[in-house]
């Protein structure tokens, strides 16, 4: 059962990541790209958890947690830059 579900889940996740990548390239505006990158890292967390189950190891937990933290800080930092860095005073 699991041997069948995991490849399907991998396929769905890869499709999701490709769609996110398309939005990163396509834009059209900076917030769109940031949002796409935000989604990209959240999906990659899901991919890592899935990979951990596939390989039957818990090593990837720390990686996933670190990506969650760093990704959030990155998104907020770039959004803050858009808010403040663009004002011509």
């Amino acid at each position: 059962m699991l041997a069948m579900a995991i490849p399907i889940a991998f396929t769905l996740m890869s499709l999701a990541l490709l769609l996110n990548l398309w939005r990163v390239v396509r834009g059209p505006d900076l917030p769109d790209r940031i949002l796409a990158l935000d989604t990209l890292y959240i999906n990659s967390i899901a991919l890592l958890v899935l990979f951990g189950i596939h390989l039957d190891t818990m090593i990837y937990f720390e990686v996933a947690l670190l990506i969650a933290m760093m990704g959030f800080v990155g998104t907020v930092a770039v959004a803050k830059y858009l808010l403040r860095g663009d004002i011509i005073e």
Partner: peptide, 17 residues
């Protein structure tokens, strides 16, 4: 649960696209 999770992630990304 894995399939549900993957399906929702895909739907979110479809929405994004």
């Amino acid at each position: 649960f894995l399939l549900i999770g993957a399906a929702f992630a895909l739907v979110g990304s479809i929405g994004l696209a």
